[in-house]
């Protein structure tokens, strides 16, 4: 099954909306691109088109949440997480149960730097009470949308537009706070999440059995005791992300390693402190060395295979 993560999100939200009448959807003139349109078509009364006014949308979501609803506010990740002061005061300060869905996280293609979101995790991580989740496959997306619809917490969902072939097993279960070891290894570990995880998984498959792969879809919170237990089995750790190397997955793992005096070799692989260029998503993956082939090379070198 190959499906884009945003499509899996849109379809699942529309499915859940039938049973859960608390779900409402808010769009900023991007409901088709964000796949909120499935929900809008099915539940027009619980759907609100705000126009190109993300700040207003954030406040409206906060007010709807304080009225007892569970708003899903979706826009491009770069646009919506750019509304920091609005999210901080209206949602975070009020501890509002709003789900902000940032689609088009990572390398999105020819639209280029302004529309690509490679700083959103760093920006959202510092906001109190927010959980941050990045689904890695269609199967996991469904479970995460279900979790988000039932939770009362503020949540930031980082959703990619990339198509991902399902690679997580049928019995896979998402649990908030718990990273999931999707492949065991010896000494060497790759940590990633989102669509790039599938690239990592494919690259590792070609390199044999001694590399483990950890899915860090629950970016905040992370059960630290749990992840330390996993990290203890590995010596060489590489984090891979379609996000700035400042404040993303790599930073999170570095913090855990430093705080707990774990003796590890850590490499942080992601977007350096810069904006990304325009091109097709696959060309961009190659350019930023996040495609399967480049990752294979990087893993080989770092793990000395």
């Amino acid at each position: 099954m190959t499906l884009s993560i945003r499509e899996a999100f849109g379809r699942e939200l529309a499915r859940l909306g039938k049973k859960n009448k608390k779900i409402v959807a808010i769009s900023c003139d991007l409901k088709d691109a964000c796949k909120l349109s499935f929900f809008f078509e099915k539940f027009p009364k619980r759907s609100f088109e705000v126009g190109i006014a993300e700040a207003n949308a954030v406040g409206i979501a906060a007010g709807l949440s304080m009225s007892g609803f569970r708003p899903f506010l979706a826009s491009f990740a770069s646009f919506i997480t750019g509304k920091n002061i609005e999210i901080r005061t209206s949602i975070s300060y009020n501890k509002c149960g709003v789900v902000i869905v940032g689609t088009h996280g990572g390398l999105i293609g020819p639209d280029g730097a302004t529309q690509s979101s490679v700083q959103d995790i760093a920006v959202m991580r510092s906001l109190p009470y927010f959980e941050i989740i990045q689904p890695s496959s269609p199967r996991e997306t469904k479970q995460i949308i279900n979790y988000s619809s039932l939770s009362k917490k503020p949540i930031y969902l980082r959703i990619a537009r990339n198509e991902v072939t399902e690679f997580l097993p049928k019995n896979y279960k998402f649990k908030i706070g718990l990273p999931s070891l999707i492949k065991r290894g010896k000494r060497n570990l790759v940590i990633s999440s989102g669509p790039i995880l599938s690239n990592c998984f494919m690259a590792v498959k070609k390199l044999g059995n001694n590399i483990g792969v950890l899915n860090l879809s629950s970016i905040k919170p992370i059960n630290e005791k749990y992840i330390i237990r996993i990290l203890k089995n590995y010596k060489n750790i590489i984090t891979v992300e379609d996000h700035s190397i400042i404040g993303g997955l790599g930073s999170i793992i570095a913090e855990i390693i430093a705080k707990n005096n774990l003796n590890k070799n850590l490499k942080i692989h992601g977007i350096k402190d810069d904006f990304v260029d325009s091109d097709t998503p696959s060309s961009l993956e190659k350019f930023y060395k996040l495609d399967i082939k480049s990752l294979e090379k990087i893993f080989k070198k770092f793990f000395r295979i």
Binding site: V24, K45, R46, F48, A55, N56, A57, V58, G59, I60, A61, A62, G63, L64, S65, M66, S67, G68, F69, I85, E86, R88, T89, S90, Y93, N94
Partner: peptide
């Protein structure tokens, strides 16, 4: 509503208004 950074309360009022209508 907790407030402090200016300019946001009217948007929150809209949220309350829509919520009241839905209920």
């Amino acid at each position: 509503t907790g407030t402090g950074a200016l300019g946001q309360g009217l948007s929150i009022s809209i949220g309350y208004s829509l919520g009241s209508k839905l209920l």
